[in-house]
Structure formats: C-alpha cells, structure tokens
Simulated assay, not measured.
Amino acid sequence: MGNRPNGPITVALVNDYDVVVIGVANMFDQYRDRVVVAELDANEPVEDTVDIVLYDNFAQPESDHDELAVLVANPRAHRVVVYTWNFHPELVRNAQQQGAHGYLSKTLPARELVAALEDVHAGKTVVSDAPPRARSAVGLDWPGRSEGLSDRESEILALITQGNSNAEVAKLTYLSPNTVKSYIRTIYRKIGVGSRTQAVLWGIKHGFTPDHDRIEHWRGGP
C-alpha cells in the first residue's frame, strides 16, 4: 500500500438509500484519524469538495452509467471510487473507462477499505480482486437486513420495488434470469408473501423505495 496522507481523507458517500450510506459511514468511525465522512447523499448531488466520492452501487442500475458519469464530472469530487460486490468484467471495464479511480469490494474489512482509499488518494487506481461470493464486510447495512434478507436478496427486492421486471433485474445485476427467479422465490418465502404485488407493497412499507436526502457534517465532519 502507498504512504499515508498527511491528514485524514475527506469522503462523500453516495447511494439511493440512507440505511446503506449510514452503514458505510459507521464502518469508518474507528478510523477518523484517516478518513472523515463529509456528507451522505441519497439521490442528491455532492455539494462538499471532497477527496473521494465512494459510490455504493447497492440497487443502482449497474449497466446504466449516467450516475457514475455525473459523479466523475463533478469538480467537487477529486476522485470517484465504486463500492460493490459485482465484479463482472464489463462493469469493471466500463467504470474505469468512465473515469472511476477505484473499484472496491464490499467484502473488504474496514481497515483494508481505508488503506485502499488512501492509495486512491495518493494517485493510484485500485481495483479489488474479484471475490468469491461472500458476506459483505462487518458493519454494512441494507434495507430488510433486520427481517433476515441477505445483502443480495435485499438488492433484488429493491430493484423489484423500483418497478423492474425479472428480465430488467437480470440485466441490471448481470445475473442470469434463473438466478434472479431463485432469489425471488427465497425472498417471497422470507418475507411471507405469495405474489409480486405483495412483495412490492412489503418493500414500500419496509424502506425499499429510494430516499431523497443529504446528511451533512456526519458526526462532526467538515
């Protein structure tokens, strides 16, 4: 890893869901001497000038690069890093072509994530090794977690709640249609519903619709 910067890195966290970005922010709490969260943005543009924007693509349209392009073009964002568990080669390649400075795995422990962000801040392009399917790092959160949904199940339900068909979910997540169907069957069983309409209503009731919010000065940040 590269040399540590002289002061803490300032980071903006971006995703459509408050619970997701708050979970990431909590991961950094014990590393406040190295990473300071400036703001958390759910469907809001980055306003603070920050060293790094960490774009968590939970339930984002991963094959639609508009949001990533907007972040890269924002002069307040010195560097942009994608934070994901989806390492399909096309997604990694497209992110780099759009100007992302890092593509980091959500399975990284907090200490490794912080070190990777320091390397990005030092001028390196950092791409995590594609992990075997594993649990997300300790401390992360997502809608439906307290109801027993895994991170990936939660993402599938969020995309359904947003109105996507099975075919669209498969395209957006780079999963096969059969894999998507398997996830949906498991989700229905876990949340106790028998139809797509019931699943969408359950999702709306339990926080699966995107938020529109900005949280500034996270725990004393700039």
Rank of each mutant, 00 (worst) to 15 (best):
D29G: 00
V46W: 12
P61L: 15
E47S: 14
D211N: 05
Q162C: 06
F58C: 00
T186I: 11
K171D: 11
F87K: 06
D51T: 13
F87Y: 13
T125L: 13
E62N: 09
W85F: 11
N166Y: 14
H212Q: 06
D211W: 01
S105H: 14
S146I: 05
E216P: 00
H206T: 01
V126D: 04
I52R: 14
V14Q: 02
S182T: 15
W142L: 04
A170L: 07
Y174I: 06
V72Y: 05
E39S: 08
Y83K: 06
L159S: 01
N15R: 02
P222E: 12
A95N: 12
P8F: 10
G192M: 02
Q162F: 03
G23Y: 02
R133F: 01
D119P: 02
A137Y: 03
W85C: 09
N74A: 11
R79M: 11
I184C: 06
K181Y: 07
P8W: 10
V46C: 14
I184E: 14
P75I: 08
T209V: 13
W202T: 02
G203R: 07
S146N: 13
L157E: 01
V35L: 09
N43E: 04
T197N: 14
V80T: 06
G194W: 07
A122D: 09
V200S: 04
P210M: 01
V180D: 09
D151K: 08
G102A: 12
P109Q: 12
E153K: 00
A137E: 04
P75K: 07
I9W: 07
S150T: 13
A199H: 10
G221P: 05
P61C: 10
G148N: 07
D56H: 07
L91W: 14
I52C: 15
H217L: 09
K171E: 08
S176N: 07
A122W: 04
F28W: 00
N57D: 15
L71H: 08
T186Q: 09
Y55G: 04
D213V: 10
S128K: 03
R135E: 12
H206M: 03
P45S: 07
R76K: 06
P8C: 05
N178E: 12
F208E: 03
I187N: 02
T209N: 04
F58R: 02
D213M: 07
I187M: 03
R135I: 02
D56W: 04
S146T: 13
D33T: 13
V21D: 00
P5A: 11
E90T: 11
V21P: 00
V120A: 04
R93K: 15
P222L: 10
A170N: 04
V180T: 15
L113T: 10
K171M: 07
Q60P: 01
V92Q: 09
S176H: 14
D119Q: 01
K190Q: 12
V37A: 07
V169I: 15
V70S: 13
H212I: 05
H65W: 11
N57G: 11
S136Q: 05
D18K: 13
L149C: 05
T209W: 03
T125I: 14
Q97R: 15
I160Y: 05
T125M: 12
V11K: 11
K181G: 14
M1P: 05
R152N: 06
V53N: 14
D64G: 09
